[in-house]
Design a protein around this nucleic acid. Structure first.
Length: 356
DNA sequence: AAAGCGTGGTA
DNA sequence: TTACCAAGCTT
């Protein structure tokens, strides 16, 4: 969120490139038009750690269903979570709804115009606040995301590890910020990082900054930014329990925070623990004649991989949770792990519902 | 400050 | 198949 506007040849050359090569994305305004703050905010939240290709469908769905921040604020949180299902990082959906309520009730339905105020909203961190302020309102601040870290660390061969790198990148990027078009500059940096200055196989011969780029001069653009050593992912075992009662299946809603927080789920063993096969049935929602299905569900989370056995039983007396018609299971908005369980149990074909 | 938090695509 | 990656935020 640094603010040191100045005129720079590099900033100008980047904008000249961008005026010709900008990506046409659904949440962007036409050239020369002001972007809708609601659309910018919605897209920025969805794009956190998520690819443009994945976001496009969700963005269209949300904007069609909730065209204004007030309409989103008025929606039941369950509907928002169900619509977000499959996109991941579900705290974003909870914060999205909380943020919409804050904007609707405390800001009269208008997003704050300054990065410093935007930063106070739920789910809006330093990057997102700066991005909204610059793109929607033209505030001269730099939004440092992964693209900008990569581009700037290469341009100046910055070898600091994070988080020190981010501060230095912020400082350097602010020096490049032209005296006008802060929003275009932010988007241009991201387009440069996404299409030219890519993590692997950067297209330096197409880059408007190549002659100034220190990493390219050193012949090692891919060495920046420095990667931190990654820790091995533990493997965990567990089980999911599909309890059927006539044509209904038992679902639960998970605790508000943590893994898959607030999302609809089948009963499972605690997903934070490795539960050996012989210990799994002790976690079943009720005592019943559980039959273990052949095979298993495999899923990879950010920090561990999971192998889930699937048990099926008929019954229901004493079970706590939500009974849902199996015909309507696809409408529930199951996170991907739970969708895999449903497919494994033969309850769903795995396709996402068209509506909602 | 380091860890927790999803998912799908690509090499 | 494995590894890595993609517009971060919160605690």
């Amino acid at each position: 969120m640094s603010r040191l506007p100045t005129n720079t040849p590099l900033g100008d050359s980047l904008l000249r490139w961008w005026d010709l090569e900008r990506r046409d994305l659904p949440w962007r305004a036409l050239p020369g038009r002001c972007a809708d703050p609601y659309a910018v905010w919605l897209s920025e939240i969805m794009l956190q750690q998520t690819t443009v290709a994945t976001v496009k469908g969700y963005f269209a769905k949300f904007l069609a269903r909730w065209p204004t921040v007030e309409s989103l604020a008025a929606a039941p949180i369950e509907d928002v979570l169900a619509a977000w299902a499959g996109l991941g990082y579900y705290a974003r959906a909870r914060n999205l709804h909380a943020c919409a309520i804050t904007v609707a009730r405390r800001h009269g339905g208008r997003f704050p115009r300054r990065a410093a105020e935007l930063r106070e909203l739920p789910g809006v961190g330093a990057y997102t606040a700066a991005a909204i302020a610059a793109i929607a309102y033209g505030e001269p601040c730099v939004a440092v995301d992964g693209n900008v870290e990569r581009v700037i660390s290469r341009l100046y061969t910055l070898a600091d590890p994070r988080p020190a790198l981010k501060r230095e990148v912020e400082r350097r990027a602010a020096l490049l910020l032209p005296s006008a078009r802060a929003g275009d500059f932010a988007q241009a940096m991201m387009d440069l990082g996404a299409t030219i200055c890519r993590p692997r196989a950067p297209q330096c011969d197409r880059c408007s900054w190549s002659s100034a780029c220190e990493a390219r001069r050193a012949g090692a653009p891919e060495d920046y930014p420095m990667r931190s050593a990654k820790t091995a992912k533990p493997h965990r075992r567990g089980a999911a329990f599909v309890l059927l009662r006539d044509d209904e299946v038992l679902l639960l809603r998970r605790p508000s925070a943590g893994l898959l927080g607030s999302m609809t789920a089948f009963p499972t063993t605690p997903l934070g623990e490795d539960v050996a096969p012989e210990a799994q049935l002790a976690h079943a929602p009720i005592k019943a004649r559980w039959r273990r299905l052949d095979g298993a569900v495999h899923h990879v989370f950010t920090h561990f991989s999971l192998e889930l056995a699937v048990y099926v039983a008929q019954g229901g007396a004493g079970a706590k949770g939500l009974w849902i018609s199996t015909a309507r299971l696809d409408e529930q908005g199951l996170p991907t792990l739970m969708r895999k369980v449903a497919v494994h149990a033969g309850l769903s074909d795995g396709r996402k519902p068209i509506t909602k």
